[in-house]
């Protein structure tokens, strides 16, 4: 069950790009042990909000609190320090490098100050893959040789491995077949079971209803609904995100 106090709380988030207001004073909270889904039509502001939480964008107004403390998420690095891991839509994987390096991209473990501890990297990558039951024969494989599902799984496993509190996922199953998508959603459920807070963006309402505990609906940059999945229906959500009204 989800905790009562939010691990992340955002209030009054505003974001403008030139003359366009992408987000209009959005309030949102994330709770540990809960999967929240951010849904909305194209241009509703979902990606923008996620990128603000992951440190890629800075909001023009509004405040964010993490575990009760005010936080400024200035950069992806800072987000990671604050315990936020992001699985970007492009997965942020380097094709020519192996799984082990990709799992530690940007935070490679070192010995003697700047020598990469490759053994440790291989060992810990293998341990993570095994613990999450990701189907991968070897962590020495170059990422470019892997299937879409494996790549996505590695990106999610990396987020788990970073050991934070919050994992953000931008369309994690969009390009995957049914079986592969199931593996990735299993990973997300594992993360939830370990008391992570997850926020995912998805176009696929059916999978959202199968996975998320809470659904937040954005429309034209504003939050118009924040519903427990069990208390709503696909029909109602579709209605909300297209017309802003419930079952019209």
């Amino acid at each position: 069950m989800a905790d009562v106090t939010p691990v992340l709380e955002a209030r009054g988030i505003v974001k403008r790009f030139g003359g366009v207001t992408a987000l209009r004073s959005v309030d949102m909270a994330l709770y540990r042990g809960e999967i929240a889904a951010l849904v909305g039509d194209n241009g509703a502001g979902k990606s923008t909000l996620l990128k603000i939480f992951s440190g890629v964008y800075a909001p023009d107004a509004g405040a964010i609190h993490i575990e009760g403390q005010g936080a400024r998420i200035d950069s992806p690095q800072r987000a990671m320090q604050l315990g936020i891991s992001t699985v970007f839509q492009d997965l942020a994987l380097v094709n020519e490098r192996d799984v082990a390096h990709n799992m530690f991209l940007g935070r490679e473990p070192c010995r003697f100050a700047f020598f990469v501890d490759r053994r440790r990297m291989l060992r810990e990558a293998r341990e993570t893959i095994t613990a999450l039951r990701v189907d991968l024969p070897t962590v020495r494989a170059k990422v470019e040789g892997l299937s879409g599902g494996q790549r996505q799984a590695i990106a999610v496993a990396r987020a788990w491995q970073q050991g934070g509190l919050i994992t953000l996922l931008d369309e994690p199953t969009a390009a995957l077949g049914v079986r592969e998508a199931a593996r990735v959603t299993d990973l997300m459920k594992t993360l939830r079971a370990e008391n992570h807070a997850l926020l995912l963006i998805s176009h696929n309402l059916e999978s959202v209803f199968g996975l998320a505990d809470r659904i937040v609906v954005l429309r034209h940059g504003a939050k118009i609904a924040d519903l427990r999945t069990s208390e709503t229906s696909q029909h109602e959500v579709v209605s909300l995100l297209t017309s802003g009204m419930t079952s019209g």
Binding site: V56, S75, P76, Q77, M80, T86, F88, D90, L91, A92, L93, V94, N95, E96, R97, H101, L105, G106, R107, E108, C110, F114, F115, V116, R118
Partner: peptide, 22 residues
């Protein structure tokens, strides 16, 4: 063998990914 070297490979392999990872 060094972190710098690894970062050189990452930067050239997929600059966007490298930047997203800090």
């Amino acid at each position: 063998h060094t972190k710098f070297g690894y970062w050189v490979y990452a930067t050239g392999g997929n600059e966007l990914a490298a930047r997203e990872m800090g």
